[in-house]
Amino acid sequence: MQHRPVVTGEADTVEGPTTGAGRRRLWWPAALAAAVALGLGVPALVAGGSDASGSVASVPAQESAEAGFARDMATHHQQAIDLSFIVRDRTESTDIRNLAFDIINTQANQRGMMMGWLDQWGLTQHSGAEPMAWMRMDHRYEPHDGSLMPGMATNTELAKLRSLNGQEAEVYYLQLMIEHHKGGVAMAQGYVDLGTNAVEKRLAQTMVNGQRSEIDLITDLLAKRGAKPLS
């Protein structure tokens, strides 16, 4: 089964956090985000990096954990970006808009790094392998209704979020993002445990730490709205 990172046209701008001078508005062309991420991320991982002796490590193979994690997490990140753009247009809450802004910027930057690494390694951005096959899990996740990996929202859930406004949209977005982050943390930890590329492992550990922290924040935002996580 092939799966591809999805770049959508949900929105091309995002409002930044409110400041004393009012909200900042940033244009968000995908090409610019990728270019910035390439500039930041690729030099550190050229040809897989160097070991302590200074010799150049080998380029990851097409179906390696390094390539699989980069592809799958890029796909996972793209949906978090999509979810955040959806809620951005359906709420006036500063807290929710700020959270969405942070998720869009952080995950778009990380996604650009991972796509850049694949390009630098001369590998394709998608493969015929099943999602997360590189993790060698005991159980297989069954993709369904557009949800390719654990934590990813289904097409039905995305449609529901698009149908909501105000606090209802806020609560549902927060609930979906907790599940999304749980899936992302599990995948990133999987690469930390299995991976061999030190730079990619550091990025994965950053994801684990950052998304766990955001789960706590999101849970607090839900409680303020009299709601709880879905699970």
Rank of each mutant, 00 (worst) to 15 (best):
M1D: 07
D12C: 13
T13P: 11
V14M: 15
V14A: 12
P17W: 13
G22D: 05
R23W: 13
W28V: 11
W28I: 07
P29Y: 06
L32P: 06
A33P: 00
A34L: 10
A34P: 03
A34Q: 02
A34K: 02
A37N: 00
G39Q: 08
A47L: 13
S50G: 02
A52V: 13
S53K: 05
A65L: 12
F69I: 08
F69G: 00
M73P: 03
H76G: 05
H77G: 03
A80L: 02
F85A: 02
F85H: 01
R88G: 01
D95H: 09
R97E: 15
F101H: 07
F101D: 11
I103M: 06
T106F: 00
R111D: 04
G112I: 03
M113G: 00
M114S: 03
Q120E: 15
W121G: 00
T124W: 07
H126M: 05
H139I: 12
Y141P: 00
E142F: 15
E142C: 13
P143Q: 04
H144L: 13
G146K: 08
S147I: 05
L148I: 05
M149F: 01
A159H: 01
N165V: 04
V171R: 13
Y172P: 03
Y173V: 08
M177G: 01
I178C: 01
K182N: 12
G184N: 06
V185F: 02
A186N: 13
M187Y: 12
A188N: 06
Q189H: 11
G190I: 07
N197K: 06
A198Q: 11
V208N: 12
R212D: 08
L217M: 08
D220L: 12
R225P: 03
K228V: 05
L230H: 00
